[in-house]
Design a protein around this nucleic acid. Sequence first.
DNA 1: AAACTATACGAACGGTCGTATTATTAGTTT
DNA 2: AAACTAATAATACGACCGTTCGTATAGTTT
Lengths: 208, 208
Amino acid sequence: MEKVDGRLARGDQTRRAVLRRAVDIASVDGLEGLSIGRLATELGISKSGLFAHFGSKEELQLATVRAARRIYADSVVVPAYEIEPGLGRVWALSRHWLDYSRSRVFPGGCFFQKVSHEFSARDGAVHEYLAAVHQEWMDLIETAVAEAVERGELADDPVQLAFDLNAYYEAANLASILHNDENGYDRARQAVRIRLESAVVPGTPVPW
Amino acid sequence: MEKVDGRLARGDQTRRAVLRRAVDIASVDGLEGLSIGRLATELGISKSGLFAHFGSKEELQLATVRAARRIYADSVVVPAYEIEPGLGRVWALSRHWLDYSRSRVFPGGCFFQKVSHEFSARDGAVHEYLAAVHQEWMDLIETAVAEAVERGELADDPVQLAFDLNAYYEAANLASILHNDENGYDRARQAVRIRLESAVVPGTPVPW
DNA sequence: AAACTATACGAACGGTCGTATTATTAGTTT
DNA sequence: AAACTAATAATACGACCGTTCGTATAGTTT
């Protein structure tokens, strides 16, 4: 993948550029709307040259999802994990998720919401990978909540609370893109706060 | 549209059959995955004959969304409106929505969640219509909540509560299709109950 | 310098897409 | 039965799809 001196081989540079563009296109038009010819034209390279990097459309789609997962992790998970475990981290996770959607890290809003719905009712490798990423994400929220419970800051079922929080995020994302306004984010932020307040152990200092 | 004796003209029968199949396909593969050739083949009619009913792909898509809206209204809104206005109706709305998703009125789960995400970041008539239907739906929940508030059964901001409830519905729908299990529905039902309990005026008889 | 590998290219393939034009059938009206 | 209208079909079009192939070039290794 990488040379010893840190530079990228020629092919990896291309691959990286392709995937950076691919995630943006897919966040708007989906992984099927992402066509190889269109991608090549937009990047000014040949269709066949691009194709050779992946070998099949499905491999391109999988690579695109993997690339999006890295960007997502950097935008949401990493910053939230800089906060100490506990209620503060749960709150940070919520804030960063909503910022990630609002700031259009992907131009079409949350990449994963888009393509998860696109592939939700099909089968194949892409569906399975997306289902795994979704589960991974839910587990991550549940863990963050469970840590806050262990510390005596929250008292609630982590699975239920994680479900609720994630529901607010996604509803805000869809509303903002569909209606092109940002009201949903305030609604979601409010929903998160109310929901956390209903679970917070009295006396716990609160991060908002 | 309809003859005086109640029978449908030949063309309307075809149109109806086309749209019934179209909503099913679109709920699985989206409105772009819904191709005219495929639709004609599955119905055993000619592509050109089918095409003549709509005149363009976009018109077919719009007609499909309108057809889905009718089915949705019959499955969710009508049954909920048989209940008296108030908390009972809000609860009925939630139950019927979750049943509508769970029972796969559309094989791919909620038609509108699917195609709303598909067209969320594009522009054109389909996007606009879907945004309007989404708003119409949110208004409907808000109204149901507001009626319960007027009756002194709930005390909360109707817009906020409607946002939260709808978020639970959609999260359950996605989880159930993506992972092919029904746990999400119980989670959502629980979330709705908890959220309503947090807003219910003490002394109000509760419908669950 | 020669041999080899990685990368990119242009051209073409069989298919399917949405759409347009023209013909044929079925139903209704006179 | 003839005339007319509504509905369906047949055929064709250019554009784009994912994919394959043969070839050219650039970079590295010997």
